[in-house]
Every structure is written in C-alpha cells, then in structure tokens.
Simulated assay, not measured.
Amino acid sequence: MRVLRGRSARPAADREHTARLLADAGDGTPGLRVWTPPRQVAFGRRDAREPGFERAKRLAADRGFEPIERDVGGRAVAYPGDALAFAHALPLGDGRGRGSIADRYGRATETLLEALRGLGADVSRGEPPGSFCPGDHSVRVTGGGKVAGIAQRVRGDAALVAGCLVVTPADAREIADATAAVYDALGVPFDSTAVGSVAAAGGPEAPKPLARALEDAFVDGPWGDGDPRIDRVDRDG
C-alpha cells in the first residue's frame, strides 16, 4: 500500500496531497496518509450553508486558525498544529468491493481503537453530548471526552475514509476554544469540556508514535496488504 508521509505548510497545498491520494485510488492504487495538518479550521459542507458561516470563518482567523472548506461531511474541526489527521483512500472499481459505507465506518473505527489501545490508551466507541464534529462514528476517552471522529467521501470509483485525532490536553484546550467560538456562530451546540485527548486516555503525548501506530494498523488491517511503500510530501509543495 502506498503510504504518504509529510505535509505542506499551506493548508490549500496540503489538501492537494490528499486529493491526489483519492484520485490515485480511483485509478486502482489504494493509499494512506497520517499527518499533522497545518493550523486551520476545516469547515464541512453543512457549515457553508449556515447563515453564520462568514462570521465563523472570521472568528477562526482571529484565533490564528486558517479557515478552509473540506470535501468530506461533518461539522467544523479545528487543527491546532499538533493534532493528527488520517485519510485512507480505497479503490471501489477493482471488482473486489470494499463493503458498504457502514462497513467502512465500522472497520475504520475498530482499526483506530485497536491502534490506540495498543499504545495504552483507554478508549471506546462513541462520544459525549456536545462534542466537536458530532457523529455516530467517534472514539472517546472511556468515560471522558471525544478523541477522534471519522467521516467519508465516496465517489463512483473510490472512497476516502478520513478522520481527526486529538493528541494532547494542550491540543484539546485550543480545539475547545476555537470550536466554541465557531460553533456559536454556526448555531451548533458544543460543550468545551467534551474534548478529550489520547494523552488523557493514557496514550502517548507525541504525534509521531501515534502516526506510526495508525499507519501500521491500516497497512496490516482489513484493507491493507502488509507492505507499506513510503512516498514523501514536499513540505513546501
């Protein structure tokens, strides 16, 4: 499986790397990316239809988060610079099939749980009320705040299973502050105490070991081939 490492400093350029991963999957080449996106608030399609969208973007920018619009579903997600994102691009037109949307959500959630538990994090499915990017396919500190959410973008020839992962309590505080302002402008309920982190669950406090553990879990998982073929991103691209 092709594994793309690295990021670009500019959010727009960084998004292009993931877009190319999906395009390559449409041509039959599966790919995986686990990385730390540059500081941004990534708004979903529903957010762009809200009357407070322009105000929400200004509030994000005021806090040093570049506002961008993403292609997958879900509500706005803040990335403070050390939080992780992951994207698994899967061909759908190769005759093997990749299951239903629900199947992909279930397998991705289980893969994420296994990777985090393998690093000592006490995590479980679900999310507390008032979470960021609320959705059915989430991971939380057991009895605590939300750690990760998963979304999908599906085309006729490929699917992108993507998500975010809060690493440290400092990440959680920054995410909570930015999300509270943005969601208030959008009219979306939010509880700032509902943001958890991998470190708060007993896992590592650094993004790199988490990224490698996620890579290994997906490469060796139900869609992987156990053979990571590393391709690197030009940070200035």
Rank of each mutant, 00 (worst) to 15 (best):
D216W: 05
G99D: 08
A42S: 15
M1V: 11
R7I: 08
V195H: 00
A194C: 02
V3K: 03
G93P: 00
G156I: 06
G31V: 08
A13K: 01
L4R: 12
E127L: 10
A19L: 14
D220E: 14
A176H: 10
A56I: 03
G202A: 05
A185I: 03
R173P: 08
P11K: 06
A9N: 00
S8A: 14
A60F: 06
V219M: 07
S197N: 00
V77N: 09
V198G: 07
C164R: 00
R155W: 01
A42Y: 02
V233G: 05
F218S: 09
P189F: 03
G224Q: 04
R46S: 10
D27P: 00
G73L: 04
R229A: 07
L210S: 02
P129Y: 01
R140Y: 01
L22I: 02
E69V: 13
D236I: 00
V123F: 07
P38L: 07
A48S: 14
D177S: 13
S192L: 12
G6K: 08
A61L: 14
R229M: 00
G31P: 11
C164N: 09
L90M: 06
G163S: 08
A206E: 15
I101F: 11
G64D: 14
G99Y: 11
A199P: 02
R96N: 05
R7N: 12
V233K: 11
A181L: 15
R104H: 12
S138W: 00
A151G: 10
G97I: 03
E114Y: 02
K146V: 03
A199L: 06
R39V: 13
I68K: 12
G44Q: 06
A89N: 09
L186D: 08
R98A: 15
G226P: 03
R75M: 15
A201C: 04
A78I: 04
A87C: 08
D220Q: 13
P207C: 13
D231N: 00
E114K: 09
R229D: 12
D122P: 01
R173Q: 15
P204K: 09
V3Y: 06
D171S: 10
A76N: 09
D103K: 12
V233L: 11
Y183F: 13
W35S: 13
F190P: 03
D136C: 01
R155M: 05
G120A: 09
V139H: 03
Q40M: 15
E16D: 14
A206H: 12
A211V: 01
S8M: 02
P128A: 06
A158Y: 02
G44R: 03
I150S: 05
R104L: 13
P67W: 09
I68L: 15
D225A: 02
L4K: 01
H17L: 13
S100D: 02
V72L: 04
G64F: 11
R75C: 14
A178H: 11
G74L: 06
E127C: 07
R45K: 09
T168N: 11
L90Q: 04
R96V: 14
V161Y: 01
A162N: 07
D225G: 14
L210G: 00
D14R: 03
A180N: 07
L22P: 08
